[in-house]
Design a protein around this nucleic acid. Structure first.
Length: 525
RNA sequence: GCCGCCGUAGCUCAGUUGGUUAGAGCACCAGAUUGUGGAUCUGGGGGUCCCCCGUUCGAGCCGGGGCGGCGGUACCA
């Protein structure tokens, strides 16, 4: 076909094909996470990719911008449907339905992994289709549920091969922030917009630091490209009170650094250095929230969560209180958590890459209630599977670096009119549970060897007329052969190389399976 | 969405002040070897120079517009 008529093979941006090695790694990773969730007593659930748009949130596509953020389309009855953009809203819908059918007992604890879709600009490590692995407890208002989720998050990360100290689960409570905002006069419905701007600014603390955030809280900030971001318009007094809260963040960092560098053995021990730092942090939060009912309640919840977590033996090397965690701006109502990787890595160009958050979650007491006459509290979190996978590849977790899988044994076609014989050999191998295939291309022997090599075949089976006459087959170990070609045969002429028939044995036909099995088992460890 | 950089073979890139048939390395395929994946030698296939419009006798190169990629920024329920 001429090039002009030819279709260009391409992928929509933000979508990806995933090769066998990635799939295998993902599968192993999901399995490890699943084991942890099961251990904690959560049960599996699957919900569909598509939901009624109204069930997914406040977002309605039939307004000005039909496809902003979410992929939506109309059913033949004109109702709007959307691809899910997270697994939380569908869970809320599911639980609400089962409550109606009265076949569910609260608290309901469930986990689910699945693809979610977002119609937004993709970036490095950001896709428009990606996988999340969530666990949620619906129907418990107790902060014990939140504490448990944090511990489980830590366990899950360690289960997939991230070492203690290479990650940290950060916990905060939205009520603390709400309390401070209320205290500086940003309470009330009419200030909702301003509060949102403040939250957005605070969410950037990691990247912009105190200086940048304080600009965003005030008049606004101009970045290097000259782009101006509008500020929240707070006065310097208000800004100081908020940043005082964030100053406690320094204590949190000190906590982690102390743990990482000193490896304190019993971090939750009364009077331990780490716990002194935590006490200092709580003290600071106490001052920041003083006089606000909701703020003090939030602080109290945080203290209880910390107590539960420490009592269970999870020190600040795994879970810390960090008042700078903001998380999703819309539906979280109480404790929020975020799993961050703490190590730095270099990419191919040698630039330092910070991985940041690989999982996050929090309490969303209002979500199920949207479908119900009564309020239903809930809390949960979500692991970004695709992102975690790249992180695991960087730390070379055994989960993803496992040997590349071997391909099938390839039976070569030496004589075109004896394909039935070769097919019989393949069947014999398969009956013995050995992955095997007949060479189905049309090329000569050299190309067949090349093909087998690329398939990562452990060996090839060769039977030409000579072997047939002698009642034998030749079996060549391709992996040993490749090694010896590099070593023994270096510099040899082609005639010598061919004559050597490296790593190749001739055995009686009836020993085919036995001999192949020997070679395969040699490679399968 | 906004700002910046970039777009030449499958990949990495050359390509002179605008000049005739657009190159290299690697990769791929074939032959040397009608039966051996390496090495070597020889040969070969591959290009709408991202697209369109314009300027020009003439555009890979200059101008305008678009598309795509990368980075930053914003948004991210």
């Amino acid at each position: 076909m001429s090039k002009a008529d030819r279709l260009k093979a391409r992928l929509p941006r933000g979508f990806a094909d995933r090769p066998a090695t990635d799939l295998a790694a993902t599968h192993r990773m999901l399995e490890k996470i699943r084991e942890v969730y099961e251990l904690y007593g959560f049960e599996a659930l699957e919900t569909p990719f598509v939901e009624y748009t109204e069930a997914l949130g406040k977002f309605l596509p039939d307004q000005d911008r039909p496809n902003e953020g979410v992929f939506s389309f109309q059913d033949d009855d004109e109702q709007w449907l959307s691809l899910r953009y997270d697994l939380t809203a569908p869970l809320a819908r599911h639980v609400a339905m089962r409550l109606d059918e009265q076949n569910i007992t609260l608290p309901f604890r469930s986990y689910r992994a699945g693809w979610v879709f977002r119609n937004e600009k993709p970036g490095p490590g950001r896709f428009r289709q990606f996988m999340q692995f969530d666990a949620d407890t619906v129907g418990s208002a107790s902060v014990a549920a939140d504490a448990e989720i944090c511990m489980m998050a830590a366990d899950a990360l360690e289960a997939v091969g991230i070492k203690r100290g290479d990650y940290v689960i950060k916990v905060n409570n939205r009520k603390v922030l709400d309390g401070v905002l209320e205290a500086i006069g940003l309470g009330g419905e009419d200030k909702a917009g301003q509060r949102l701007t403040v939250l957005r600014a605070l969410d950037k603390y990691d990247r912009l630091g105190e200086e940048g955030v304080s600009l965003l809280l005030g008049d606004g900030r101009k970045d290097e490209s000259g782009d101006v971001t509008k500020g929240a318009g707070l006065n310097s007094d208000q800004i100081h009170r908020i940043l005082y809260l964030f100053g406690a963040r320094g204590d949190a960092d000190a906590l982690v650094n102390f743990q990482i560098h000193h490896g304190e053995e019993v971090p939750h021990e009364e009077g331990g250095r780490a716990i002194q730092l935590e006490a200092a942090l709580f003290h600071r939060l106490g001052i920041a929230t003083h006089g606000s009912e909701v703020g003090e309640a939030g602080l109290n919840e945080l203290k209880i969560i910390a107590e539960y977590i420490r009592a269970a033996g999870y020190g600040p090397d795994r879970v810390i209180i960090d008042p700078s965690v903001v998380r999703g701006l819309e539906y979280y109502t109480g404790p929020v958590y975020e799993a961050e990787l703490t190590f730095e890595v270099k990419n191919d160009e040698g630039q330092t890459v910070r991985f940041g958050s690989v999982a996050g979650g929090g309490r969303y007491d209002g979500l199920v209630g949207r479908f119900r006459p009564e309020p239903v509290p809930a809390t949960g979190f979500s692991i970004g599977v695709s992102r975690l996978l790249s992180a695991l590849q960087i730390v070379k977790s055994p989960i993803v670096t496992g040997e590349e899988q071997l391909g099938p044994v390839v039976v070569l076609v030496m004589d075109r009119d004896r394909i039935a014989d070769y097919q019989r050999m393949v069947a014999e191998l398969r009956n013995a549970k050995i992955r095997a295939e007949l060479y189905l291309g049309g090329a000569g022997m050299k190309a067949q060897m090349k093909y087998a090599d690329r398939r990562r075949a452990p060996c090839v089976v060769i039977q030409g007329s000579n072997e047939k006459a002698a009642g034998e087959v030749q079996i060549k170990d391709l992996i040993e052969g490749a090694e010896r070609a590099r070593a023994d045969a270096a510099g040899a002429s082609n005639a010598e190389y061919r004559a050597a028939r490296l790593a190749q044995v001739s055995v009686p036909e009836q020993n085919l399976v036995e001999e192949v099995r020997k070679i395969v088992s040699r490679r399968n460890h």
